[in-house]
Amino acid sequence: MTPRERAVFVAAYTNLVVDVWSNPHSERQLADDPRGLLARHGVPVPAGTRVVAVRDVAGSEPDLDVQVRYWQEATSTGELRLVVPALTELATAELDEAELDSVVAGVQSTCACCCPCCCS
């Protein structure tokens, strides 16, 4: 695989993953017609190759090199494992009143209402 071929695959695969994360129709298509989803994103799949969608692999980080290897080996194995990791949610926390009072739009509240010239 040339660096250009790899770059084209990585860009298409990345767009596919983002599409699945953000579009319920694409998420359903991943389950129902992964070959069609790959085609829609410009990822060629050799004829006769079975596409197996793997979702939400618990306890593992997405590994782009592994996905590239699966794509390269699809011709010889007859199977393409298409790994689409779970979209992890960011941790959220409530701020208490003291924390809210100490921050105003990312600036300490003691300087939020004055012009820069009076803080020197």
Rank of each mutant, 00 (worst) to 15 (best):
Q72A: 12
D63S: 12
A74K: 10
A12P: 04
A11C: 04
S76E: 15
T110V: 14
L16H: 00
E97Q: 13
S60R: 13
V20K: 00
W21L: 04
S120Y: 11
R6W: 05
V103A: 14
D65K: 09
R81L: 14
G106I: 06
A58V: 14
E27N: 12
E27T: 05
V54K: 04
A47I: 06
A74C: 14
A98Y: 01
G36L: 04
E5N: 10
P44H: 07
R50W: 03
E27W: 03
G36V: 07
Q29P: 00
S60I: 09
R35K: 13
E89W: 04
V84P: 01
R40G: 15
A74W: 03
L37P: 02
S102E: 13
P44K: 05
W21T: 01
A74H: 07
A98P: 00
N15H: 11
A58G: 08
E89C: 02
P116H: 10
C113M: 07
T88Y: 06
C113R: 06
L30T: 02
R35A: 13
A12L: 05
G42D: 10
A39V: 11
P34N: 01
C111W: 11
L82N: 05
A93S: 14
S22M: 09
L87V: 08
C114T: 14
E79C: 06
G78L: 10
L64V: 15
G106D: 09
L16G: 00
G106F: 06
D65G: 15
P24R: 09
C119P: 00
P46D: 06
E61A: 15
T88Q: 13
L37R: 02
V104T: 11
V18F: 07
A58C: 00
T77I: 03
D33Y: 02
D32A: 15
V8H: 06
L82E: 06
A58K: 08
E94V: 13
R4S: 14
A11P: 03
R28M: 08
H41N: 15
L64Y: 02
V83W: 04
G48F: 02
G36C: 08
V52N: 06
R50Y: 05
D101V: 13
T110Q: 12
R4N: 11
D101W: 09
A93K: 11
V20R: 01
L16Q: 02
S22Y: 03
C113L: 14
E99A: 14
V10K: 09
R40Q: 15
R69A: 15
P116Y: 06
V10M: 08
R4P: 09
T77Q: 08
V17Q: 01
